[in-house]
């Protein structure tokens, strides 16, 4: 028996509504749960103090700074590298076996579990290159992890820049590279920033790679240099929740840590969204 098109339309729409409601409900549930449980733990002391009494009291200051350093370090490496690679692939590479191989490699890299990146970072940066367990090793590992995200997002952003803008610039006797720098990149910037936003979230939240490359279980001070070990929010959370000295007692601190991590990522995203909006406004066509 066939249903009338108007009936199938209604059924389809009902399913779509259920799907989106479920998604939104879960997002809000998680946000609410963490906020409700974590807000009580947050205070100036919590944000500016080192963990005390075997991490059952005190704050998470070193972990906040550690996470911010990881974000900065990995972005400093991954953004230029990823954007330049995307420019090469989208603007210069000709279709062929080599390009196909590179594209496949990037896709595979994107699908590699983060713990594998961790092991790779341990072998290459920590051991072979001798950086030791450190901010440097962890940042480089995280940079590799988010590289495919940045390359893909940047490539897509570059590909959506209309051909007409490139032709107009080249027809004025402007070189290809100048055209990319002055015309193509500014137009593609909002899309590139989107890739950066997603990567910041990944970097801030990843635990497995930093666990293997330099995150410290407990280090109640700030790192001295990039070759020092560090604390980071996701690992700190993991430690408190699974192997802390008093897991039950530290529940509020755990939720507080989770909330701070969430707020950092959210805050950075808001900044990136503001940048994106600013450029969209300037660059609309």
């Amino acid at each position: 028996m066939w249903l009338k098109p108007t009936t199938t339309e209604k059924i389809a729409f009902a399913f779509l509504t259920i799907a989106i409601t479920t998604v939104v409900a879960f997002v809000f549930l998680i946000l609410y749960y963490i906020t409700a449980n974590g807000i009580g733990a947050i205070s100036i002391d919590f944000l500016t103090n080192v963990p005390l009494k075997r991490m059952t009291e005190g704050g998470i200051y070193p972990a906040i700074i550690g996470t911010l350093l990881l974000i900065t370090g990995s972005m400093v490496v991954a953004l230029p590298l990823g954007i330049l690679a995307a420019i090469y692939l989208n603007e210069y590479a000709r279709e062929g076996k080599l390009t196909w191989t590179i594209q496949m490699a990037i896709s595979n890299l994107a699908g590699t579990p983060s713990v594998v990146f961790g092991l790779f970072g341990l072998a290459l940066f920590v051991k072979y290159m001798g950086f030791g367990p450190s901010i440097l090793s962890a940042s480089l590992t995280l940079a590799l992890l988010v590289l495919p995200i940045i390359i893909r997002a940047s490539e897509e952003a570059l590909a959506t820049v209309p051909k007409g803008f490139r032709e107009a610039s080249l027809a004025l006797g402007v070189t290809k590279w100048q055209t990319i720098r002055k015309v193509v990149l500014p137009i593609a910037l909002p899309g590139i920033v989107t890739g950066a936003i997603i990567s910041v979230g990944r970097v801030a939240g990843e635990t497995a790679p930093i666990l293997l490359t330099g995150a410290a279980f407990f280090l109640p001070r700030l790192p001295d240099s990039v070759s020092d070990q560090f604390m980071a929010l996701p690992y700190h959370l993991f430690v408190l929740a699974t192997s802390g000295t008093n897991i039950a007692k530290t529940r509020p601190i755990q939720y507080g840590t989770a909330l701070v991590l969430l707020l950092i990522v959210l805050g950075l995203n808001l900044i990136a969204v503001a940048i994106r909006r600013h450029y969209r406004k300037k660059m609309k066509w």
Partner: peptide, 28 residues
């Protein structure tokens, strides 16, 4: 590059850059 400076081109679809009028002219 120099050739295209001497031999300019205007295209079928108007394609000003997404910049101000002034910047469009000053670009070249």
């Amino acid at each position: 590059v120099n050739l295209r400076k001497r031999v300019g081109m205007v295209f079928q679809k108007p394609n000003p850059f997404p910049m101000s009028i002034y910047e469009n002219i000053a670009y070249g």
